[in-house]
Design a protein around this nucleic acid. Structure first.
Lengths: 338, 338
DNA sequence: GAGTAAATCCGAAACGTTTTGGATCCAATG
DNA sequence: CATTGGATCCAAAACGTTTCGGATTTACTC
């Protein structure tokens, strides 16, 4: 591996000059610059970013803390789309991404902060972490610039990006109300997700606006998975047969609810309307096609990376980005049939 | 940020001793080791992996070169599953993953080799690269340990992992033959993928065994995408109405072919049987559910990481791993109706 | 008591960069 | 001629580790 020392020797100049020539400083003669560039090329030189990082105290890397990047979570292409968005922004910068292993039990010995500090990442993007994660606050309270996805915290070096979950849920439920539904159930995610709290709030708000009393029995918690949605819907529909519509906090749970309905011989959308949340790929392939609240997952990732970049370059006017949602009407909802 | 020097000063020993104590060398007294460990804890010390990398000439990182990690490629959760497999193995090691941006036009100024050499990755896993990629051979010929997914090259520091595409395609076509089909079309991927060549070979082999003559007209190339599959099927079915079955080189193309059939008012599986390849998530959600050749994408990634690890630790007895496929019968194929 | 071996420690060099703070030379200026 | 200022270059320190080669002390052997 050739170094700038080698170049200096061959070109007959000092390492300082080589460094400054290669980095485009102005105090080097154009002829020697050319000479140096040529020698560098001849010797097939690649700068050693590690050495550079050491002296500059900047690694030019961004850490990625995605929890649940496992075999099971593949169904839900949420993570991938977010990742694609992050990647898209980062490609345009001079940063690289490093993926941390958060799911392994072995790595759990180290906290996220330790992980980040050891690798000396310049900043970190955190996605899919539960609010009761013991290490979450440690990261936030550290001085590592950090962008959270779907967790609304901010400080001098913490930003976050999320979608407007309250209004999203409201849209979903209002859509059901507009179609004549009055007995509307909700299958929410687990309580350790901010989005769950917010979507529940939206659910209540929509009912309130329509002057429909909300019944605690109509609200069940799932775990964002297909199977948990199935189980929740099963319970909900069995004990409350008057329910004609369900709003689910994720498409995966909605799809689970659809199979529960099938098991109970309840027809969708004739007997039961279902609205999901996310608009994952499957939503438009499942049958009947799922009506849902679309969030732009790619943009979520893109904006997260952008916010981090702002943080890293001190261009952070703002520390928050809230994206809008959109109701996508498909086939799983119907005007109520009297 | 506290360094090993700080610890040395506080603990009243030399940096050498701190280093050796923290790294578990035997020539340090148990008492001083404890003292050092305690001081390190008090000072909230994190080792600087960059400094370590510099002197050890090992970055303990693995580069990931996945092409097409973009917005569009999300449908195809192939990449994610492979990534999950890689991640799964790597979590158990002391390596971290760094994602390279291969899709950006900006980064294209640098070759993969330059990318890898600058970041000083210890090894690299390459996925989804076309065989006509100008930079592929550069990497292979460099001295960077490297594992290729689905490209059968090997050398002292190049391994590869793939599935048995010939036998996979054979299984698919034989299944169709067993169901009485004789006029079997094939929609292949583009020619710059080794898997395409191999699957074509499998197609021919199956026909040969059944003593069916293969017609060049029956073979069309797509581009692995849904839309290209739709277009290819459209052409194939219009000009060869006698075709009763199609084998597609990817599920996405098979799904495209299904919509082409629908457009042409051809019923699946009554009038046309379709077999896909991959068994992506969508395959079992599309209607009718797609019969396909399953390849274990997670394992593909896992084994790739394992092979690279072998390469990096010089434990490489073998440089190749070929996984088996499995025919998954669903609803898109049917015994031919006379 | 001399010699030996084990246990424990340390100084200094090395890894490949960037950057600070000048040094040198030459032409122009007064 | 002395001075100035610009252009061009460089030596050395610094970044935070690891490791080589030895130094010192202690305990043991004969």
């Amino acid at each position: 591996m050739t170094t700038i020392k080698d170049i200096a020797r061959v070109a007959g100049v000092s390492v300082t000059t080589v460094s400054r020539a290669l980095n485009g400083y102005s105090d080097v003669n154009e002829d020697t610059r050319k000479k140096i560039a040529q020698v560098a090329k001849e010797l097939n030189y690649s700068p050693n970013s590690i050495a550079r990082s050491l002296v500059m105290k900047k690694s030019k890397t961004i850490g990625l803390l995605v929890s649940g990047f496992t075999k099971e979570s593949v169904k839900d292409n949420f993570i991938v789309e977010v990742l694609a968005g992050i990647n898209d922004f980062v490609s345009g910068s001079d940063y690289d991404l490093v993926l941390f292993n958060t799911n392994s039990s072995k790595q759990r010995e180290k906290t996220y902060t330790q992980l980040c500090r050891e690798r000396r990442v310049d900043g970190v993007i955190i996605q899919g972490i539960r609010t009761d994660d013991p290490y979450l606050h440690e990261v936030v309270e550290s001085d590592i610039p950090c962008v959270l996805i779907d967790i609304p915290l901010e400080s001098t070096n913490v930003s976050h990006v999320t979608t407007d979950n309250v209004s999203g849920a409201e849209k979903a439920v209002r859509h059901l109300i507009d179609q004549g539904h009055r007995n509307i159930g909700m299958i929410n995610g687990h309580e350790f997700a901010f989005v769950s709290q917010q979507r529940l709030e939206g659910y209540h708000a929509a009912l309130r606006q329509a002057q429909i009393e909300s019944k605690p029995d109509y609200i069940v918690n799932g775990a964002f998975t297909e199977e948990s949605g199935r189980a929740a819907a099963h319970g909900l529909l069995s004990s409350n047969p008057e329910i004609t519509a369900i709003f689910c906090s994720s498409d995966l749970m909605a799809i689970g609810a659809m199979s529960a309905a099938k098991e109970l011989d309840i027809k969708i959308p004739e007997d039961l309307s279902i609205v999901g949340y996310d608009d994952i790929l499957l939503a438009s392939y499942v049958s009947p096609k799922l009506t849902t609240i679309r969030q732009n997952k790619f943009q979520l990732g893109y904006e997260a990376a952008k916010l981090l970049w702002d943080l890293l370059t001190n261009q952070s006017e703002t520390h928050r980005m809230v994206l809008e949602t959109k109701l996508i009407e498909r086939e799983s909802t119907n005007r109520i049939i009297e």
